Simulated scan of single mutants.
Amino acid sequence: MLKFSENENRSDMIISGEMLGEDLLLDALDKIYSLSSPIKCKFLRGSFNDHYSIDANGSKFILRIYKNKKRYIRNITDIRFELDFLEYLHSNGVSVAFPIRSIKNETLNTVHCKNELRYIALFDHAEGSHIGNINPSDAMFFGKLVASLHKKADEFKSEHSRIKIDQGYLINEPLETLEKYIGTLNLSDISFFKTRANIMYEQINQLPTTNEAFGLIHGDLNPSNVHYSPVHGFKIFDFDHCAYGWRIHDLAVIRLCFDNIVYKAVLNGYQSVRPLSSIEEKSIDMYSDVLLLRKSKDILDMLEVNKNSKEEKTKVVIKTIETLRILNNKPFS
């Protein structure tokens, strides 16, 4: 049975990850939020968190159930930081899916299920659909939105904490994770990548850390986290990976997700609002390669959280080793 719980200031995030049933959530939603009846709840997807679509008498929302302890979410203050950040961006005119406050005026709320505390947040619905092959004109508007997000983020203050992205996060952690799996699965080692990794480390170390170049970022600006509609335009959501990092991190994710024409249009739109320094612009391709390495850890961590099979993890590791070989053979920039 699912029970409504008062908001609790707990620092631990040790959660089993069991998916909560749609019917069980309806009672909690009715008690926690001021939503119009009838309320409908439908499971959408699960990864590091579970997400549900909520229809409250025609008004749409997204419910997130936090379900695991992860590297970039150390405690509850990290989650509160994200929710505060989203409220701040929304209040400053940046198009993001913002958290809905509860009857008790909280953005982060809790429920109990089978003697386990679960943290939940309800978000504004992003109209439209995932961005796919967008035209250059729309891509420029998207670039302007990302730049506006970065500029507004410079003024954000919070009593809560959030991680900083550094070389350890980008390079050391993924390699350590891969080596652990390689040893367990008895696969070929990745010692061939050591020199390349060291060079990547030094290149990242040369990036500027000024307030303009290093600050709050979305952290995962892939097309599945952005919706577009002709009426409402672009809206960014899922700030679960937001962090303090290099601003080109968000641009490098976009670089990996779109063809060169769209990427260049995004970049032009971005620079019309926030110009990049020469080293920032030159480093985006290199940073994209680094993100291909980091992606492997994120995928493997997600497979662990969702208790995927050994075979599925093996496929990811083998594919990552192939990617590292390709990166290792690229000319140095």
Results as ranks from 00 to 15, higher is better:
residue 143 G to C: 02
residue 326 I to L: 04
residue 245 G to A: 06
residue 240 D to E: 12
residue 159 E to R: 14
residue 319 K to T: 07
residue 76 I to F: 10
residue 19 M to Q: 09
residue 310 K to A: 01
residue 179 E to H: 06
residue 257 C to K: 06
residue 21 G to W: 07
residue 216 L to V: 03
residue 41 C to F: 04
residue 190 I to M: 03
residue 151 K to D: 01
residue 187 L to I: 04
residue 135 N to S: 07
residue 164 K to I: 07
residue 306 N to R: 12
residue 194 K to R: 15
residue 304 E to D: 13
residue 78 D to G: 14
residue 81 F to V: 06
residue 223 P to R: 01
residue 71 R to K: 12
residue 252 A to W: 02
residue 233 G to Q: 00
residue 260 N to Q: 12
residue 251 L to G: 00
residue 52 Y to K: 02
residue 79 I to R: 14
residue 332 F to C: 00
residue 293 L to E: 10
residue 325 R to E: 09
residue 79 I to N: 12
residue 186 N to W: 11
residue 278 S to M: 07
residue 2 L to R: 13
residue 188 S to W: 01
residue 136 P to R: 13
residue 263 Y to K: 14
residue 215 G to W: 11
residue 80 R to E: 04
residue 180 K to A: 04
residue 329 N to W: 11
residue 310 K to S: 02
residue 21 G to K: 14
residue 125 H to T: 03
residue 259 D to H: 15
residue 14 I to K: 15
residue 42 K to Q: 09
residue 189 D to A: 03
residue 11 S to Y: 11
residue 308 N to Q: 10
residue 169 Y to Q: 05
residue 33 Y to V: 00
residue 71 R to Y: 13
residue 295 K to E: 04
residue 32 I to T: 12
residue 173 E to H: 14
residue 19 M to G: 05
residue 322 E to V: 10
residue 48 F to R: 01
residue 307 K to H: 05
residue 267 L to F: 13
residue 177 T to G: 04
residue 228 Y to Q: 00
residue 19 M to E: 08
residue 35 L to A: 02
residue 172 N to T: 15
residue 112 H to M: 04
residue 298 D to H: 11
residue 237 F to I: 06
residue 8 E to S: 07
residue 157 K to H: 11
residue 6 E to W: 12
residue 323 T to D: 03
residue 120 I to D: 06
residue 239 F to C: 04
residue 111 V to Y: 11
residue 106 E to C: 08
residue 249 H to V: 01
residue 85 F to H: 10
residue 223 P to T: 03
residue 204 I to N: 05
residue 305 V to T: 09
residue 295 K to H: 13
residue 1 M to V: 11
residue 260 N to L: 02
residue 189 D to Q: 10
residue 288 S to R: 11
residue 300 L to H: 00
residue 176 E to I: 10
residue 85 F to L: 06
residue 55 D to M: 04
residue 259 D to V: 09
residue 87 E to K: 05
residue 79 I to M: 09
residue 58 G to V: 04
residue 131 I to V: 10
residue 219 G to A: 03
residue 55 D to Q: 13
residue 168 G to Y: 15
residue 258 F to D: 02
residue 165 I to N: 10
residue 301 D to L: 09
residue 30 D to Q: 11
residue 166 D to C: 04
residue 104 K to L: 01
residue 26 L to C: 03
residue 91 S to I: 03
residue 66 Y to H: 15
